[in-house]
């Protein structure tokens, strides 16, 4: 009866990443919904506002970002709910693998399966709104650097609202205000580029935000998960 003493965070991250990516691959339909949602919301704007090319180009980054934010919110429910319902989450809390690692791996897998696809389809936004190549590039980089923050902050909210009846609404109320800075710098990056100021400052801030969130949010999410069980 020996107990293995130490399990590193790498082991936990790789476990969660492999498992959640495989699960995502097996339920592609559910993931497609968030992506489709993103594309539809984005497409509603050129139809509903004045189709003046100059106006569309001005509002494009903001619309892409707001839609990305809503699509992320839509997909957040998947992050812990299924594992909570079938008892896997309690096994994660009881696992000798470090929980912040498991949570980190889960959030990373969630971003790869929901955030990254948004980045990859964003050229379609550029086509719809007549964005130039340089602007599209900045938009994609801003989404690439910013959407991980959405997933990581969202994870805290998803953990806090776990098992509550009004969870989806509460989650939106809890998380959307936290998304505001990301939205400002994300959409601002494209505007700064278009106005000739250069997007470097905005993008650096987003990158710094991702790093900071990566260091802090797994622990906050763990605490929230434990509260959900106590």
């Amino acid at each position: 009866m020996t107990e293995r003493e130490f399990f590193g965070p790498g082991e936990a991250i790789s476990w969660a990443l492999r498992r959640d990516l495989r699960l995502a691959l097996r339920s592609r339909g559910e993931l497609g919904v968030a992506l489709l949602f993103f594309l539809i919301v984005v497409s509603l704007f050129p139809l509903s506002v004045n189709p003046d090319p100059k106006l569309l180009r001005t509002i494009a980054p903001g619309i892409a970002w707001v839609s990305a934010l809503l699509a992320t919110l839509l997909a957040l429910g998947r992050l812990f709910n299924n594992d909570y319902a079938d008892g896997t989450l309690e096994q994660m809390l009881l696992s000798p693998l470090p929980l912040p690692g498991i949570v980190g791996g889960k959030v990373l897998a969630h971003w790869i399966s929901t955030g990254l696809p948004l980045v990859l389809v964003s050229p379609l936004v550029a086509v719809q709104f007549g964005l130039g190549g340089g602007e599209l590039g900045v938009l994609m980089v801003s989404l690439l650097l910013g959407t991980p923050i959405l997933s990581m902050l969202g994870a805290i909210g998803a953990a806090l609202t776990l098992g509550l009846r009004a969870a989806p609404v509460l989650l939106a109320l809890l998380v959307l205000p936290l998304y505001v800075p990301v939205l400002i710098f994300g959409a601002g990056a494209v505007e700064a580029h278009a106005s000739g100021l250069g997007a470097g400052g905005h993008l650096s801030l987003l990158a710094a935000g991702t790093l900071l969130a990566g260091l802090a949010t797994p622990w906050a999410t763990c605490t929230a998960l434990r509260i959900a069980y106590e």
Binding site: E3, F7, R19, L23, R26, N82, T88, E90, L94, P96
Partner: peptide, 29 residues
Amino acid sequence: GVIYFGHATAVKDELTAIENLEFGLALAG
């Protein structure tokens, strides 16, 4: 030091029996 076997089976619908067991064991260290 403890393994808990509760009402919830912690079995994932999308994974096969063998994958479920492999991931379950790895999670239990």
